[in-house]
C-alpha cells in the first residue's frame, strides 16, 4: 500500500529525514518509535503533504501512485488520514460542518453524491458514543477550547467518519490519561481491517499495550535503524533509546 524508498527531506536548512525506507501493506499495523527529534512527526507530515517540508531525495508510492505529486487534499481523498499531534483550533467552524465537508469531499472524489444529512448525523452520533464524546461537540468550533484528551478523541472521530485506507496517528497517546487512552485505543482497533493499514507514531510503548502492532520500527536521526515485532517495543522500554543508537552505530 505504502512504499517509502530512501526518503530524504529538509525543513529550511535542516535535514531531517536522511534516507528512510519503509513498506506498509494492507491489514498491517506499524509502530514508529524513536527519541525526540528523530523525525517521527516529520515523516507523518511529509506523508500528509505538508508544504513546509521539502523532499530532496527518494520516492513514496501509495497504491501505485507517486504520492509526492499529490496535494494534501488529494492524498486525503485517496484515503490517507493524519491524526495530528497538535490538532488545530478553528473557532467559528463547527465540528459538524468540517466533518460533513470532509466526508463530502471524499465522496465527490469517489463519484458519489453528497451524504444525506440525517444519515450523517446518525452516523456521527454513533461514532461519538463509541468514543464517549458528548454529541454537543458537533456544534462546537473545531477543537475550540477542547482539552488535550478531547482534541485527540476528536481526531479519532474524524478518522472513524472518513474511514481511511491508511491512517497515520502522530503521538495520539500523548496527553491522555489511562481511561482516555483506552477509549482512543478502542477507536483505533475498531478501524483495523484487512484492507486498511495503520501507522502509529509514538514516543512511548504504553499505547502498544492496547493497540498491538505487527511491526515496530525505531527511528533515529532520520533513518529506521531497527525493525522487529512487538517485542522490540518492550525491549526499548526496558533498555532506552541509547541502546538502539549504539547498536546502530556499532
Amino acid at each position: 500500500m505504502l512504499e517509502i524508498n530512501n526518503l530524504k527531506c529538509r525543513i529550511g536548512d535542516t535535514e531531517i529525514l536522511r534516507g528512510l525506507s519503509l513498506t506498509v501493506n494492507a491489514g498491517e499495523v506499524h509502530a514508529i518509535m524513536g527519541p525526540n527529534g528523530s523525525g517521527k512527526s516529520t515523516l507523518a507530515l511529509v506523508i500528509a503533504g505538508h508544504e513546509d517540508y521539502v523532499v530532496t531525495g527518494g520516492d513514496v508510492t501509495y497504491n501505485g501512485k507517486n504520492l509526492l505529486d499529490l496535494d494534501p487534499e488529494e492524498r486525503a481523498r485517496e484515503g490517507i488520514f493524519l491524526g495530528f499531534q497538535y490538532p488545530v483550533e478553528i473557532p467559528g467552524v463547527s465540528n459538524a460542518s468540517l466533518l460533513k465537508a470532509a466526508v463530502n469531499a471524499k465522496r465527490k472524489h469517489q463519484g458519489l453524491g453528497e451524504v444525506d444529512a440525517f444519515e450523517f448525523l446518525k452516523l456521527a452520533r454513533e461514532k461519538m458514543a463509541a468514543l464517549n464524546m458528548d454529541p454537543k461537540f458537533l456544534n462546537r468550533g473545531v477543537n475550540e477550547g477542547f482539552s488535550g484528551g478531547e482534541k485527540k478523541r476528536n481526531e479519532i472521530l474524524q478518522m472513524a467518519m472518513l474511514e481511511p485506507s491508511l491512517a497515520i496517528l502522530d503521538e495520539t497517546d500523548s496527553g491522555l490519561d489511562i481511561d482516555a487512552l483506552k477509549v482512543v485505543a478502542k477507536g483505533i482497533n475498531a478501524l483495523r481491517a484487512p484492507d486498511r493499514a495503520i501507522v502509529l507514531v509514538t514516543h512511548y510503548q504504553r499505547l502498544l499495550d492496547y493497540v498491538e502492532p505487527d511491526f515496530v520500527h525505531v527511528l533515529s536521526e532520520g533513518r529506521i535503524v531497527r525493525s522487529g515485532d512487538k517485542t522490540l517495543a518492550l525491549e526499548l522500554e526496558d533498555k532506552g533509546y541509547d541502546w538502539v543508537r549504539e547498536a546502530a552505530s556499532a
Partner: peptide, 20 residues
C-alpha cells in the same frame, strides 16, 4: 493545512475560514 489534510481543497478551506 489541517482542513486540506481532511480533503478540502485550498479554495474550500479558504472559504470556510473566511466565512468563520
Amino acid at each position: 493545512f489541517y482542513l486540506r489534510s481532511r480533503g478540502l481543497d485550498r479554495q474550500q478551506a479558504t472559504h470556510i475560514l473566511t466565512r468563520a
